Simulated scan of single mutants.
Amino acid sequence: MQAVSRTALWVASMRATEAARPDRLHDDPLAAAVVASAEQEIPPAPPGAAEFMAIRTRFYDNFLVDSARQVVVLAAGLDARAFRLPWAPDVRLFELDLPELLAFKDEVIATAGVTAACTRVVVPVDLRDDWTAALSAAGFAADQPTAWVAEGLLQYLSEPDKKRLLDTISGLSAPGSRFAFDHMDASADDREAVVDALEKIRSMGAEFVATVDDPAGWLTAHGWTVAVDRIPALAVAYGRPLPDFMDPAAANATALCTAALPA
C-alpha cells in the first residue's frame, strides 16, 4: 500500500483505541478489522494523538449528522461513517480516495459483513488530478446542496493543490452547500509535541505541509461564511477535556472549520 495508506492505517488504529473506551466519542465498526487486516506494522501513536483524533472525529460526525442529502467525503480513507452514523434513508455518500486504498477498504467491509446505512458510492481518484468527471459519472448532482468533508487532507497538499481543490469544491457547490475541513496553524511547527507527530507521519512516507493561518480567507472570497473551532474548547464541549500531559498551545494550533453557502 502507498504511504498515504499507511497514515490511514495509523488513524484507523487510533479509532480502534477510541472504540474500546467506555466513554468513547465514536464507535467505528471497521477500525479493529482494519488493524487486524493490515499487512504491515502500524506505528504506535505519540502521546495525545488518540485523544486529538477522537475530538476531530466527533467534530466531523456532528457536522454530518445534520448534513445535506448529498455528501462528498474527500480522501475518505478507512473511516466508516457510511456505516456508523444515523443517516436519513435518502442520503447518497460519495467516498473519494486512491483506488488501492478503497479496494483494501472494500475487502475489510466484506470480511466484517457490515452494511452501509446510506447509499455509499465509491469513487477511486487521485485528488491531485481532475476528479470532477469521475464524481459526476458516479451520480453527483451539482445542482443539489452538498456537504463536503476534507478531514485531515489539506495538510498533505501543496499550496497550488489546495487552491485547486478549493476552487473545484466552490465550483461544484449549489446554494445551501456546507464544507468542513481542518488545518494547522504555522505556529504548530514550533511545538515539540506537534513536531514529534509530524516526524512520525513523515517516517511513514507522507509529506505533511502546514497550511496558512487564515482558513476563513480561503473561502470568504468565494462567498462562503466560515466558522472556526479549536480542539481544547471542543474537548470540553464533548465532555472529554484533554489530558494534562497534552500541550494546550499545540492542541490549539489545529483549526476545525465549517463553511456554508447561502441557500
Rank of each mutant, 00 (worst) to 15 (best):
T220K: 10
A49V: 14
G239N: 09
S37R: 05
D61G: 12
Q144A: 15
A237K: 14
D27C: 12
S187W: 01
R202C: 04
R56E: 14
N62K: 12
G77H: 01
V65R: 14
A259W: 01
K200I: 11
H183W: 04
V114P: 12
E18H: 06
R120M: 06
G77I: 03
W224I: 00
V195Y: 03
A68C: 14
D244F: 08
Q40Y: 07
S136Y: 00
L78D: 09
Y238T: 07
D196P: 00
H26P: 00
V123D: 13
R15H: 14
D27T: 11
L127F: 08
D196V: 14
T220A: 06
A138R: 07
R21G: 02
P145F: 01
P99T: 02
I201S: 10
P29K: 03
L166C: 10
L30H: 07
A82W: 11
V212D: 15
A54S: 13
A45N: 10
A210N: 11
S37Q: 03
Q2T: 14
D129S: 13
V195W: 09
W87E: 05
D214F: 03
T111I: 08
G223V: 05
Q155I: 10
A174G: 09
D28V: 03
D229A: 12
P124A: 02
P160Y: 01
D189R: 12
A49G: 10
L256N: 09
S203H: 12
I169Y: 07
G217L: 02
V125L: 07
F104V: 07
T211D: 14
K105R: 15
T115M: 14
L64I: 06
A180H: 06
Q40H: 14
E41K: 09
A150W: 08
V149D: 04
V123Y: 12
D196S: 11
